[in-house]
């Protein structure tokens, strides 16, 4: 997995609440057996008209936001389906950080597996970041994972928290499966115990 250290880039505002994973990537694009190439269909139904052309009103289609790397989104971002195609599409588009007041559980977990940092902030801080994101190309925010700080284009510094294990994995680009396999003996031991205690499983 790609290492995550620091992102300094354009932040786009998406204040709508309850943006679900069907909005992030509709099911017609789930028929792939690959992980790559989904950036072009990120937010497909909002981003393109029914007949195919781009919807100029949609934030990521505006000239200032075409190179967005940070998304400041409304509450409960990523709710709904467990599809990991949602973070795959976000990452493929070039977005590395999503900031909201809350995330749906499965989407939140999926982000960390793909080198995306989801950040939960208080409402008061969210308002500051949303306002900053509305400034367009000038709103180049900095997200520093090691220091756990977001710096707005005006230099306002907002601290955030992140699970230490997940931070470690992101910073070092570690693959979870490799880490778990190092604990193989614990799994063996559990299986031996469980096969005695609950042989019907």
């Amino acid at each position: 997995m790609e290492k995550f250290d620091k992102v300094h880039g354009v932040a786009a505002p998406m204040p709508l609440i309850n943006i679900d994973t069907d909005m992030i990537i509709p099911k017609v694009h789930l028929k792939t057996i690959k992980r790559s190439g989904l950036g072009v269909v990120l937010f497909d139904e909002m981003r393109y008209h029914d007949h195919g052309g781009e919807n100029e009103e949609f934030v990521l289609n505006k000239p200032a936001y075409r190179k967005t790397e940070i998304l400041v989104a409304g509450d409960n971002f990523g709710c709904g389906s467990s599809r990991e195609h949602a973070p795959w599409a976000i990452k493929d588009f070039g977005i590395r950080v999503v900031i909201s007041t809350s995330f749906a559980d499965i989407f939140f977990n999926n982000c960390f597996k793909n080198g995306i940092l989801p950040i939960v902030v208080e409402e008061e801080h969210h308002a500051i970041l949303m306002e900053d994101a509305h400034k367009g190309e000038n709103a180049r925010m900095t997200v520093h994972l090691e220091d756990q700080q977001i710096t707005t284009s005006d230099g306002v510094v907002i601290e955030f928290s992140v699970d230490p294990h997940r931070k470690h994995c992101l910073l070092n680009g570690l693959d979870d499966i490799g880490l778990t396999m190092e604990k193989d003996h614990h799994i063996d031991k559990f299986e031996n115990h469980a096969s005695q205690a609950r042989p019907w499983v």
Partner: peptide, 16 residues
């Protein structure tokens, strides 16, 4: 779970 976790469970029969 997401697909990365599907792979994790297939490989290790556990989840973090």
């Amino acid at each position: 779970i997401g697909t990365s976790e599907v792979e994790h469970v297939l490989a290790t029969q556990t989840l973090i």
